[in-house]
Amino acid sequence: MRRFMNFMLLVQQTMRKRRRRERLMEKKKRKTKMATPIPPKPFVHEDLIIEILLCLPVKSLIRFQCVSKQWFSLISDPNFVKSHFQLTPHTRRIEFISSDFGQTISIDFEEQFDLENAFVKQCNFFHPHADSLIQIISSCRGFIFFHHSSGFCILNPCTKIHKQIPLAPGEFETNLELRYFYYLYGFGYDPLRDDYLVVSLSCIPAEED
């Protein structure tokens, strides 16, 4: 059973109620006028479209951005994205990132395996000639944080959108120090600010006697 707990859906609810009231008024008017009802051409209102879009898988949603400008803005709206994330039952999925071909392959455990449909996409986050070694550092709420030859990157494997993360000032600045420092990285979500954080930690290992 789906839960409707977020703001956007509440807005939809009230909109639906308002429209219902309007329809009732209309119906009453029609009744008093004794007009013959003309069956209207089925038209699906925007808030109903949103209800359907919220039930779609990500891949379909991204494709349907091509339907119209209205659909494009509905689907890319951050509030919609948030609602969709909250409502979607999280699938069990395994992600592969290939450094040789710059591809990601995602396999859903709950669907029949089919390499054709296994979410393959070229991701151009490395130079073709680079001797890339991808090191996945961590993942959080579906995002993958990894290191490769030209820096740090966060990838959304569902949308294939990735973002290069700039290094903190001072990081790797002094070659001399680099010999003695360890760098540790973390990636997490802050629900209070609704934002993601990359944390880097440098430390000097204790010298052994």
């Binding site: 209800e51 779609l56 379909s60």
Partner: peptide, 14 residues
């Protein structure tokens, strides 16, 4: 309505 939203979504997904 909720049930049919899901039905429509399933039918148009592909």
């Amino acid at each position: 309505l909720d049930f049919l939203s899901q039905v429509i979504a399933d039918r148009i997904a592909n």
